[in-house]
């Protein structure tokens, strides 16, 4: 491709990708009157932080933020732990039904979440977990993707390592915990960021599983906040709340970009 044309394409692409974010931030810094003026202003003047102040107070935004963090951190920890253990077992150990079980696990990866939605709600209701953190966390403590990822990793572990450990009488559990797992940092990071973003952004399940204000995660809270101004929308206020919801995901992504891209390709192209 022609170099100049290529660069132009890239810049236009980058601009289009960034434009909505710019709009989000400029609008969040405007007063209501300014945003509603016609024709609309592009640059906030006067610049105001009132929307952020109001958003934090009005919509219980901090609470939702905390819920999202709690759910994300716990499910990340859970997925890493259960995924590493199971991935290791599937990769390095032989036990009855191993291959069948792994095949079943892989199959669950194929099932769209919508298929499970109704029975999962019924199950969680039966357990008395509607409107609890358990409903948001426990079903997500393990996943096929994590197992798959760790299995790939542990399959590459040199066998001599294991043998040496075994000769020394090191139990499989010890070996997994003290030798195998610490080598798997890249897989941990990849799964970590995938699960963090998935958890941070997921909407349909928490929408169905929780109803009380204080249990909402950010996406559900944001949707409710938006709905509570259906008649006249205070766009600057809404944009301020949205900014708060977006920023953590972007920060985490910026820190763990490489692992994310790698995981993306392993999940999609190879595997």
């Amino acid at each position: 491709m022609n170099r100049a044309l290529g660069l132009t394409t890239l810049w236009i692409g980058a601009l289009l990708c960034a434009a909505p974010f710019l709009l989000l931030i400029t609008t969040s810094l405007m007063t209501y009157e300014q945003a509603m003026a016609y024709p609309p202003a592009f640059w906030p003047s006067p610049l105001t932080l009132d929307n952020f102040r109001k958003a934090m107070g009005e919509g219980a935004l901090w609470r939702w933020f905390g819920n999202s963090v709690l759910v994300a951190v716990l499910t990340v920890a859970g997925q890493i732990l259960t995924g590493a253990m199971a991935g290791y077992a599937f990769a390095r150990m032989s036990f009855r039904g191993r291959d069948v079980l792994f095949f079943i696990v892989l199959m669950t990866m194929m099932v769209p979440v919508q298929v499970n939605l109704v029975p999962l709600f019924a199950l969680v209701a039966r357990l008395g977990w509607v409107d609890t953190y358990q409903a948001l966390i426990i079903p997500d403590l393990a996943g096929a993707f994590g197992i798959f990822l760790f299995r790939q990793w542990f399959m590459g572990l040199p066998k001599e390592l294991e043998d040496a450990a075994r000769l020394d009488g090191c139990s499989p559990w010890r070996f997994f915990w003290t030798v195998a797992l610490p080598t798997a940092t890249p897989a941990v990071a990849t799964l970590g960021i995938f699960q963090f973003l998935a958890s941070w952004n997921t909407f349909m399940w928490p929408l169905v599983a929780t109803h009380a204000d204080h249990l909402r995660t950010l996406p559900v809270g944001l949707a409710a906040f938006r709905a509570s101004m259906r008649e006249t929308t205070d766009w600057p206020l809404l944009m301020a709340a949205t900014t708060v919801a977006i920023v953590p995901a972007i920060i985490v992504f910026l820190f763990l970009q490489k692992q994310f891209m790698k995981g993306l390709m392993d999940g999609a192209v190879k595997g």
Binding site: A89, M93, L101, V111, W173
Partner: peptide, 24 residues
């Protein structure tokens, strides 16, 4: 090892079995 394998896999299998496979 047979036992260890199942043991290590069991937390994930339990969660996936109950909250994914069963609903499917």
């Amino acid at each position: 090892e047979r036992i260890w394998g199942l043991l290590l896999a069991s937390p994930a299998l339990f969660i996936i079995g109950v909250f994914s496979l069963l609903p499917t």
